[in-house]
Simulated assay, not measured.
Amino acid sequence: MFLAWNEIKNNKLRFTLIVGVLMLVSYLVFFLSGLANGLENMNKEAVDKWDGQGVILTEESDINLPQSSLTLDDYNGEGVDEYASLAQINSIATSDDHKSNVSIFGIDKEEFIMPNVIEGDAFAKEGEVIANESLKDEGFKLGDKLSLSSTEEDLTIVGFTNNAKFNAAPVLYTDLYTLQKVRYGKAAENYEDRINAFILRTDNLSDIEVPDELQVVDTTTFIENLPGYSEQNLTLTFMIYFLFIISAVVLAIFLYVLTIQKVSIFGVMKAQGISSSYLARSVIAQTFLLAIAGVIIGFILTMITGFFLPAAVPVAFNYLDLLVYGIVLIFVSVLGALFSIQTIVKIDPLKAIGG
């Protein structure tokens, strides 16, 4: 450690560049991790808000909520602690100059998926909705009349809730009949009993029996089958893992070049009786110190960036994930130093000093 630290102090510029590279890689890994978590939350916030363990859908829906079509009589709640009915459609909501993609949930306000109201009131009559508070950042406010695409029906925002996005779209909660009027227009009375799913709360999901044309899926499986959810997470995770490889390769190249430049010095040290294992430990210690410095600076920069990012940027940092990624970055950096150690071990003192 003594040799490693003294060399860092005597070659500040050279090792500052190495720390800078590790800092940039760490910063990118941490930021991508936050972005992955943020996008993941945007897709499943409303599902998490249900706090349910399972969902009943039609067998032919391919675990896709909009493709499932049920009636209120298809399930009576047998075998579960609680259950709730849900109808869902996607639309584009417009108010004055403000426009947003939205997901509209038709629910029974007496059931457990009724959201908490943090501002305004709960919907009490036809045409009223509770909106996710993210719409406030887009210019929507209490009392706004919302025009929807593909329908003549208007909705009115009477309240706001939090943490309610589905497939990255803010959710509008309303009663079942209002949703059917939005979906079917004047024919809504003929489809009052139509829903898309039943949401379940139970500790014995596997014991629930439903007709052959229906299926029971756990909430995790339901989330993983949301359109684009798994593909998005897989892409960002692959990018993070690829950065680990880049970090190891870049550091290995840096340290290898530095080692080649110091072959004669290492040869002299070996001739003086300093063992290869001591020199190897010195290189590993040096790499460890540089990696820790780069990771810490990268983490600090990530937190500063996250503080100043606008709310529209979907970034959510999971500190346990960041800790794990930081440890992995340090590990792969030390792993990259092994190439230099092989070179040190093979140094012949006589040849290195020109003997």
Rank of each mutant, 00 (worst) to 15 (best):
D121P: 01
A122F: 13
A122G: 13
F123I: 03
F123C: 10
A124Q: 15
E126H: 13
E126I: 11
G127Q: 08
G127L: 12
E128M: 08
V129L: 11
V129N: 07
I130L: 14
I130W: 13
A131R: 11
N132F: 12
E133S: 02
E133Y: 01
S134L: 04
S134H: 02
L135D: 07
L135I: 11
K136G: 01
E138K: 09
G139N: 08
K141E: 07
L142W: 07
L142M: 11
L142F: 14
G143R: 09
D144Y: 04
S147L: 13
L148G: 13
L148S: 14
S150G: 09
S150T: 07
S150P: 00
S150C: 00
L155T: 07
I157R: 05
V158K: 02
G159K: 03
G159E: 02
N162M: 08
K165A: 04
K165I: 02
F166A: 01
V171M: 10
V171D: 11
L172R: 06
Y173F: 15
Y173V: 08
T174L: 02
T174P: 04
T174K: 02
D175G: 09
L176A: 07
L176N: 06
T178F: 05
T178Q: 09
L179I: 06
L179R: 01
Q180E: 10
Q180I: 00
Q180W: 00
K181P: 01
K181M: 10
K181A: 05
V182D: 03
R183C: 00
Y184M: 06
Y184A: 06
G185S: 09
K186T: 14
K186R: 10
A187Y: 12
A187I: 00
A187N: 15
A187R: 12
